[in-house]
Design a protein around this nucleic acid. Structure first.
Lengths: 343, 343
DNA sequence: TTGTATGCGTTATCAA
DNA sequence: TTGATAACGCATACAA
């Protein structure tokens, strides 16, 4: 059996209470005693039993994180930042993966809450009733990139502002001459996808015709959605995220379509490999790590008992690379915007 | 406060012992009583406190997983499979990320072990002394893709046989006519990288000249290593993994080198996007999910107290796609690159 | 400042 | 089959 606090107390000739106080630093102990306790604890290699600590303290020192899909690089940076932030504060993270199935979220969330002091829901697609039950556990819940629900205001929202940069990106495309834009939509229940589509629709006011094609957020779905989207004969395609854009790009290559010569393409997130595709992807840079850090800070405050913890809307910005360019009609044709002609 | 076993016992008019027995199913209880207990437990929404359970049982129902880098897609599928397998057996997974720094492994591993009943080390680069300390906790340790250490045989190994398919891939390249092969090596302390390089070296017996260029396992490192590797004037480049291959490929595009016309390129792992690059990547398919499942099965057995749990060496296979082709020298013969100059 | 004693919520041992 | 009750290892209110 492992060495317990009792053995340390015995070896140091003090009570278990003193050992506990010294090691947790919760109360003042005379320097000599403290030193002696620390010495013997170290020499015995004593490690407090976290389960017993948790039981006695009423909190486990663990937080749960629920993501739709661990295999999506998009979530990795966020989780990583969250995890490291939590680690620095002495917390451990347990994670679960709902496999993009909203019906998994409630049971998994409840399971996580049994182990943890709080729950971080990333890009949750859970129904309001499910969320209500999760919140009902009376433990802090932080929602990342989740649609704000006025009717359940008991959790803190950390979100990325997708609308503004996405709209800016549309504006950019329109300025370059694109008039026919297709949006490859993400998971149906994804709030972020709705926001991005809302932004794309706004391009109508600049005179573009836009439509939405069901797709998803994976490489495979982007690949599969390509032909349908091309049927709409767009000059620019805006994918829900970089993964879908990448799958789409791959299919374009097979079909002999060149990007950006024949077609402009944009993604979203700016995951690490977005700048390494051929051509490098025009996209929107999501502050992935910042989101993780912000989520932890909010969680930390909630765990510390703060009443009003405010949510955040983090900014993101357009990143123009080489997968977008003026459409062919602009290049050949009647030479509309004469950028070069000096005469 | 949450509802405890005592309240359920009171409401059902039985002892806490009976409630525990019914819900855990550890001992026979008369059907009527059992039913009554179940009813009241359900109606009260009783959930056993996992911390108290863990303390009383002497095990937490949690296993720890330590990976070098959570952001590497390579690990995602493995972790995901491991996690889901563990979930099915009622276990939760806590994960930590060493950020590719071997000095982080010991502290993180020890931290994980405090919470968990066992530890899975994925692609560990820890020093033998560190491993010895981890094993010293007397909890099961499963090592995934770690160099077998004869001197510490107290943990079970689950590995992928990289040597055989990598060698086969070399043979394939040589048969296609490649005589000058460069290997982009992975992390220095990675056993898998050593195995793969050992396989590449074996190409010497087929008459090829091979050399190794320091690189790493990330897109960025593959990108950065490109120019140095090209300096060796190889006709084929074999990257440590798909990520490095992808970075390399990206740089080639910038330098105006076409793959596979000017240069053949291979990866390793067959991560999801390998088939979507342009051109699709020739690589070796690592059974990522299978590794996760096998690691859990081994861990499960160890947790159940089995004495001799055997390790496994999982096979992997070469996947030929379009990033490899016979070198130009084979195509043109004595007419090296007369593609344009007609005169 | 230090020690004593109780509680945290379950499981498991022992009697009945 | 069921019920008291002692662990499990630690934290803390209370006393000294």
């Amino acid at each position: 059996m492992r060495v317990t606090i009792r053995q340390v107390a015995a070896a140091a000739g003090v009570s278990t209470a003193t050992v506990s106080r010294v090691l947790a630093g919760t109360q003042a102990v005379s320097p000599e005693l403290a030193e002696r306790v620390r010495q013997t604890a170290a020499s015995l290699g004593y490690r407090p039993n976290v389960l017993a600590q948790g039981l006695a303290r009423g909190r486990s020192g663990v937080v749960g994180v629920l993501v739709p899909n661990l295999a999506n690089p998009y979530f990795n940076d966020t989780i990583k930042a969250l995890m490291h932030s939590a680690e620095r504060d002495g917390y451990r993270v347990i994670v679960a993966d709902s496999d993009e199935r909203r019906e998994n979220e409630l049971p998994l969330g409840e399971s996580l809450l049994r182990w943890s002091d709080g729950l971080v829901l990333v890009a949750s697609r859970a129904a309001p009733t499910a969320l209500r039950r999760l919140v009902g556990a009376h433990k802090p819940v932080v929602a990342v990139n989740h649609k704000p629900k006025p009717e359940i205001d008991e959790f803190v929202h950390i979100s990325v502002n997708a609308y503004t940069p996405m709209r800016e990106l549309c504006r950019h495309l329109v300025r370059e001459g694109h008039r026919r834009i297709v949006y490859l939509s993400g998971p149906r229940t994804s709030w972020q996808s709705q926001e991005r589509w809302r932004a794309v629709r706004s391009a109508r006011r600049w005179g573009a015709s836009v439509s939405s094609v069901p797709c998803g957020g994976t490489i495979e779905e982007g690949y599969a959605a390509a032909e349908g989207a091309l049927g709409e004969e767009p000059s620019a395609v805006m994918a829900f995220n970089d993964l879908a854009a990448f799958g789409f790009l791959s299919r374009c290559g097979e079909l002999g379509l060149r990007v950006p010569e024949d077609l402009s393409l944009t993604g979203f997130d700016d995951i690490p490999f977005a700048q390494f595709t051929s051509p490098p992807l025009t996209t929107v840079r999501s502050p992935l790590a910042d989101v993780g850090v912000a989520a932890w800070q909010a969680m930390r405050r909630l765990l510390d008992g703060e009443r009003r913890v405010l949510g955040m809307m983090l900014p993101s910005e357009m990143v123009i690379r080489s997968s977008t360019a003026p459409p062919r009609s602009m290049l050949g044709g009647s030479e509309p915007d004469k950028t070069t002609p000096t005469t």
